[in-house]
């Protein structure tokens, strides 16, 4: 019974990766065959960046879904987070390779001078660190520090949302909505932390509370 559940969770995860990468694949084929409109590189870049933000947001929805709605999808959170990382990597690669044509001087100038680019790079760097430590070995190795490290996902979400808002010449309803969703998800964390502190008993520790999340997240991964 248990092993069948584990296997089906594995299949769902596999499907998640497969379906999750469809937008990138479709957009790439369209761009390579000149079906992405007049400015294909720009459309491709934006598509990849937007999906990175979407998967990042989805990964942040898992905890409130469990706590508020009682739906436990923790075992899919890592896949969503990794999809966010892969899209961020594709987005950065499209920018450096297709948009800048490997013009490293412009890249360096962008990365050092422009808050818009710096925010995007910060989000990517965080996601890369989280992706690199998302395997079982790193989790065991880092112990309690793993939790602290992976809380940086909130900083990545903030950077990514502002980066998205700044990517247009004017404030758009769409970008504001994404910003609001990120803000709501972070507000939930603040509320949850405060609520937990409020009812913490002498013997119970935040460590146990937090530590509880992770084995479930990892359930069936090994």
């Amino acid at each position: 019974m248990a092993s069948r559940r584990v296997r089906s969770a594995g299949l769902v995860r596999l499907a998640l990766y497969g379906i999750g990468l469809v937008p990138a694949a479709v957009s790439f084929v369209q761009g390579a065959t000149d079906r992405l409109g007049a400015d294909p590189v720009n459309v491709f870049e934006r598509t990849l960046g937007l999906w990175a933000l979407r998967f990042l947001i989805l990964s942040l929805c898992i905890a409130p879904l469990r706590d508020l709605a009682g739906i436990n999808l923790l075992r899919y959170r890592r896949a969503l987070g990794l999809l966010a990382f892969w899209y961020a990597l594709f987005h950065l690669t499209a920018y450096v390779a297709l948009d800048l044509g490997f013009d490293l001087r412009t890249l360096l100038a962008d990365v050092t001078r422009r808050p818009f680019i710096i925010l995007g790079m910060a989000a990517f760097t965080i996601l890369a660190a989280l992706a690199a430590t998302s395997n079982g070995w790193a989790i065991r190795r880092l112990g309690r520090r793993w939790q602290a490290l992976h809380r940086w996902v909130y900083a990545a979400a903030i950077c990514a949302a502002i980066h998205f808002v700044l990517s247009f010449k004017v404030i758009r309803v769409e970008t504001l909505l994404y910003g609001l969703v990120v803000a709501a998800l972070l507000a939930f964390r603040v509320w949850r932390t405060a609520a937990r502190r409020g009812r913490r008993r002498p013997a119970s520790a935040a460590g146990r509370d937090g530590g509880r999340e992770f084995p479930r997240d990892d359930a069936g991964e090994a």
Partner: peptide
């Protein structure tokens, strides 16, 4: 308007 990814160069 110089084609897909690989037609356009900066």
């Amino acid at each position: 308007g110089t084609g897909g990814f690989f037609g356009a160069s900066r």
